[in-house]
Each structure stands twice: as structure tokens, then as C-alpha cells.
Design a protein around this nucleic acid. Sequence first.
DNA 1: GCCGAAATTAAAATAAACTTAAATTAGCCT
DNA 2: AGGCTAATTTAAGTTTATTTTAATTTCGGC
Lengths: 222, 222
Amino acid sequence: MSMRVLYVEDEKFLAEAVMHLLRKAKIDVDYAADGEAGFELALKPNYDAIVLDIMLPKLSGLEILKSIRERGVKTPVIMLSALNEVEDKVRGLEYGADDYLAKPFKTAELVARLNALVRRPPLTDAKKLCYEDLILDLSNRTINGVELTDKEMGIFEMLIKTPGSVVTKEQILAHVWGADAEFDDNYVEVYVSYLRKKIKSLNSKAQIKTLRGLGYKLCLTN
Amino acid sequence: MSMRVLYVEDEKFLAEAVMHLLRKAKIDVDYAADGEAGFELALKPNYDAIVLDIMLPKLSGLEILKSIRERGVKTPVIMLSALNEVEDKVRGLEYGADDYLAKPFKTAELVARLNALVRRPPLTDAKKLCYEDLILDLSNRTINGVELTDKEMGIFEMLIKTPGSVVTKEQILAHVWGADAEFDDNYVEVYVSYLRKKIKSLNSKAQIKTLRGLGYKLCLTN
DNA sequence: GCCGAAATTAAAATAAACTTAAATTAGCCT
DNA sequence: AGGCTAATTTAAGTTTATTTTAATTTCGGC
């Protein structure tokens, strides 16, 4: 049940030291010394997290990150770099990195960050979210091809991100309309109604269920 | 649909500048200038993320973080601090912070980190109470998957919280219906009846036992 | 067996949620 | 800018789940 981490780093001496400390912290580490080897390993869904140096021979950390994300790999990634440049950080995070650590760093901090990352549920693809036979495409704003409006998608996104558990109208209003908006539950009711109509037209097994006085949840029809 | 963030920071001048830039990045910002105000706002589930300075008047960022996590608030938190000490970072992350940013920072980086955080699905808090084979799911309002109404859950929650000891009808009325409500014992009897029916349908070892003239308790069938 | 307490049920009342359609607003295109 | 379209808001009527009421039956202790 211990954590498995892939560590891609070309500075062998540093790598040895860090790996030693990670293992002391009960973390299993696989090691790759260059970009290509790292890329091969990173494609496998074996890891709870990947620690990626940016400056690497053959293939940079950013390139690895970009490539694996394009191929749908969602493993959390922490980028490492001596360049404490904001631009790199921003780029890394935009490519889908989950955290960024500047060199030199203390291993204790790396461990803490790894733990923080792994505490969270796995990263879902930024572009698509699934529940059963329903696929919400965030970039096209569709469910299985059926187009949604902004509000419809906002609500459905909340539901599909926590399938099976309840989302309240207040949470929906706060998230989709904004907390300052004066709340009228009917907004939500109207759009839930629209969503249901669209989901029904897809003959899905899934449905939006009402929990009176509580909120809504996404679940299977029974 | 835009991101909503709570920003707790006592340095007003810095806060103004950062907020300006966040708003430019289409992020809705609520602002609190001291720990107490921040704590109050942080308790509300209105935010996609909270940015917490550590050094604050009245209540430190770490204290706020600890308190809201204890109360089950799962909103992602980014800690801010001028102290670039590893110990603080580790402590913050262990208390349940999701990220840590050292001052001074560039707002672009804060924005990137906020985006990275919010991409992740929210942590759902599935609060549950157990007695023998019965699991009361408070957030979904179910016992072992069987749905309950408000009153049913109110009563069952009282019983399961003090298994084996007696809860009076008066206590139940006061707790579930409200202290001011005029009490009619039959309310309770009706709902206990419903609860029993549902528990029976689960073939549970547990049962709600009547103690004549006293009240009810949760115990095993004998 | 009798009596009061508790349980059960079904019905009526209430409150929450749903659905529609019309009115309004916002975004776009020429 | 003006007009067209799509999205959102508003509002009213309808439906449905939950709660309350009330009448009836069962149960437990004496």
C-alpha cells in the first residue's frame, strides 16, 4: 500500500541522495536517468506520482509531460527545476503538471508534496469526464454529442465529478452562478430539468436523482 | 462559471495588487483582512479554492486551515508565507493544505497553481456512522443504500450516535422537530415505524427497541 | 382480560421540486 | 448600430415527496 513514484533526473549524485531519503520515507522509487527512459516508464500506469526534472538529456521534462498527457496519462506530476523562472512554472502547470518545486529543495518538502498530491483522487482528464455511458466533453460542451449550454454544463460538471454523492442547490448556485448572485433555487431546477431531458434522449442508464431537501446526485436508474 | 477564490491576507497594499491581477485573470475574489474574518468565510462552501497567508492578525493561517479541515471543509487551500522554512511548508501540507507558495510570488504563478488545483475533482466528504452491519451515510441520507427522509435520518442519527443507550421521544422531538415545536409523540412513533420497516428490509441484525415509557435504543436482535 | 402506551396505516395537508412557456438579456453577424 | 439567434431569467401552474393528522390495531404489564 506504499506509494510508488517515478523519478526522472539526470544528476546521478543528487538522484542517489534523494532516492535514499524517499525510500526512508517508505516511498518506492523507480528511477530514470534520461528523458527517453523516463518517458517509456511514465506511460505505464504503475505510479502514484511522477517527479520530473525539466532539464534532461534527449527529452526535456516538459516534453515528457506534454506527451504523456496527450496520451491520456493522468498520473500526478511534480516538476523540478533549477530555473526558478515563473514562465517555466506556468508552462509546466498549464501542460498538466500538478506541482512545481524549485531546486535546490529539501527532500522533506518533496515528501510532503507527494503526500498532498496522492491524498487527492486521481486527476481526471481535463477534457472529458465520464460516468457510466455518459461522456461530458468539456471542450465541445457536449454530453455524448448533445450540446449543452453554459449553465447546463456547469451543473453537470459538478454532478459528474462527484458521482453518487449529493450536490446541493446552494453549491450549484455558488459554483455556476457565483456566490454573490441572489439565489433562486428555481434557476437550478429549470436547468436540471433541461439536463434530464437531454440525458433521457440519449437512453442512458444514468440519471440525475433528486434528494428532497438535500440536492441532486448522479446515479443509475433502478 | 468562473473560479471563486477566498483570499486572506493582512497586507492591504499587496492584497489590492494581487486581487486586481486575479480579477484580470477572470477569477472572482473574496477578501478577508484578518484571521477571524477569513475563518468565517472559509467555512462556507462557496469557494473553489482558498489562498491563506500564514502570518495574520487574530488567527494564523495554519490555525484557520486546521480548524476548517476539522470541520470537514475540503476546499483546496494554498498557503502563502514569507517564511521560506521547510518546517512551515511541511506543517501546512500536513494540516491539509494543497499547495504552498513563498512570498514574494508572481501572480501568474498563483493563477497557474489555482488552475491546477481546481482542475482536480473536489474531495467528497462521505460522513458515515456505523452500528453493526448498518451504515448511515449522512451526506447521501441512506442506510446501506436505502434512502431516508429528513426526519427518518434525524431520528436514526440520534440512535446510532449513542448505540445501546436510550433516547427519549422528548429528546427526539427537540432535536429533529425543534425545541419550540409542540410535541406529539405520535410523530416519533410514525417515523420509528418507517425506520423499522426499512431496517427490516435490509435483514439487519440490528433493531430499534422500544423501552416502554422511556424511549428507544438501537441494539441487536436476540 | 383490561388499560394505556405504542405501532401501524391510510388520508389529507403541506412544501419542495418540476415543467413550460413567455419575457428578457446577451452575444454575434452584417 | 440594428437585427437575429441563442441563452437565461421569470413566473405560473402542475406534479410529487414528505410530513402531519387521525383512526385503528397491537402489544405489554398488571
